[in-house]
Simulated scan of single mutants.
Amino acid sequence: MNRKMLFKLVNDLVMTVLMLIAMAYYITGNMIHEVVGIVVLLLFIVHNFLNRRWYKAIFKGKFNVRRILQIGLNLLFLVAMVLMMICGILISSDIFPFIPLNNDMTLRQLHVQSAYWGFIIMAVHIGLSWGMIINSVRRMTGITGTSPIRTIALRILAVLIVAYGVHSFFEGEMGSKLFIYNPFGWFDNDSIIGFLIDHLAIMGIYITGTHYALKFIQKQDQRVVLKN
């Protein structure tokens, strides 16, 4: 794996973890929330700079189902992140207290709702690239061959993660929080580690679902090509 790809993976991994920490507002408090949010903003800018070629090629090439989904979700993720960050800066009380606002309730709601939706879209976004991520990790670790035992073990692990993710999803009433304003009060868990485990498991639902849905679509496309 080249250094640029490794840097991309590390940048995205750190950004993902910090986004989850920023969402644990009721655990970290406002100051840490804002500091982490600024770091996420910087990492997000770096992420987009490193992937700037994608924007240049957005209207080039063939548009199959996977590419259309990828473009749509990437743009939705961009909108959610930009909206969340702009609203976050405007309602800041510690880092940017000099911005005067009389009634910021609407901005607070937009900030929280875009964070929830951004969380889900981010997981699907990762799922779209999961095959590439796995191949990069294999090259980095020197794993070249296939192993039935390893494959079965990883699939069992994926099932367990999804099962726990579904439990956490309903336990935290995630579905309602995508549409109803709730200032980061997801779970009764007062531990950052527990919070991360719960939310990474929820992400696992969408990463796994997206990854295998793409595999199914690709198999269907291959069958169509073979028939023709």
Rank of each mutant, 00 (worst) to 15 (best):
Ile86Asn: 01
Met81Lys: 06
Ile68Cys: 09
Ile58Val: 08
Phe77Val: 13
Lys60Phe: 13
Gly72Trp: 01
Val82Ile: 15
Ile71Trp: 00
Gly61Asn: 08
Asn64Met: 01
Arg52Gln: 06
Arg66Ser: 12
Lys62Tyr: 15
Trp54Pro: 00
Ala57Val: 14
Asn51Phe: 03
Met81Val: 15
Leu76Lys: 03
Lys60Gly: 11
Arg52Leu: 11
Leu50Met: 06
Phe59Thr: 05
Lys56Met: 06
Met84Tyr: 06
Lys62Trp: 15
Gly72Ile: 13
Gly72Asn: 13
Ile86Met: 04
Ala80Lys: 01
Trp54Ala: 03
Ile71Arg: 05
Gly72Tyr: 01
Val82Gln: 08
Leu75His: 09
Cys87Asn: 01
Ala57Pro: 04
Met81Cys: 13
Tyr55Phe: 15
Tyr55Pro: 03
Leu75Glu: 11
Trp54Cys: 00
Asn51Val: 08
Ile68Met: 04
Phe77Thr: 12
Ala57Arg: 15
Arg53His: 03
Leu50Lys: 08
Met84Phe: 02
Cys87Met: 06
Trp54His: 05
Leu50Gln: 09
Leu75Ser: 11
Leu76Gln: 00
Lys62Phe: 13
Ile58Thr: 10
Asn74Asp: 09
Leu83Cys: 12
Asn51Lys: 00
Phe63Pro: 00
Arg67Gln: 08
Val82Ser: 13
Gln70Trp: 06
Arg66Asp: 14
Leu78Lys: 00
Asn51Ala: 09
Phe77Gly: 12
Asn64Lys: 14
Val79Tyr: 07
Phe59Val: 07
Leu83Arg: 11
Gly72Asp: 10
Gln70Arg: 09
Ala57Leu: 15
Leu76Glu: 05
Val65Trp: 12
Arg52Asp: 05
Asn51Gly: 00
Leu50Ser: 02
Val65Ile: 12
Gln70Ala: 15
Val82Thr: 13
Leu75Gly: 00
Val79Asn: 01
Lys62Glu: 14
Phe77Gln: 05
Leu73Tyr: 02
Phe63Thr: 09
Ile68Leu: 07
Asn64His: 09
Arg66Leu: 14
Lys60Ile: 11
Leu69Ile: 10
Lys62Thr: 14
Trp54Gly: 01
Tyr55Glu: 09
Ile86His: 02
Met84Glu: 08
Leu83Phe: 05
Leu76Pro: 07
Lys56Val: 10
Leu83Trp: 11
Val79Trp: 04
Val79Cys: 05
Asn51Met: 05
Phe63Val: 12
Ile58Asp: 08
Phe63Lys: 14
Met85Asn: 05
Arg66Glu: 15
Phe77Ile: 11
Val82Ala: 14
Gly61Gln: 00
Val65Gln: 09
Leu78His: 08
Phe59Gln: 07
Gly61Asp: 03
Ala80Leu: 13
Phe59Leu: 13
Ala80Gly: 05
Val65Leu: 08
Leu50His: 03
Phe77Lys: 11
Arg53Tyr: 09
Leu75Asn: 03
Leu78Asp: 00
Ala80Trp: 01
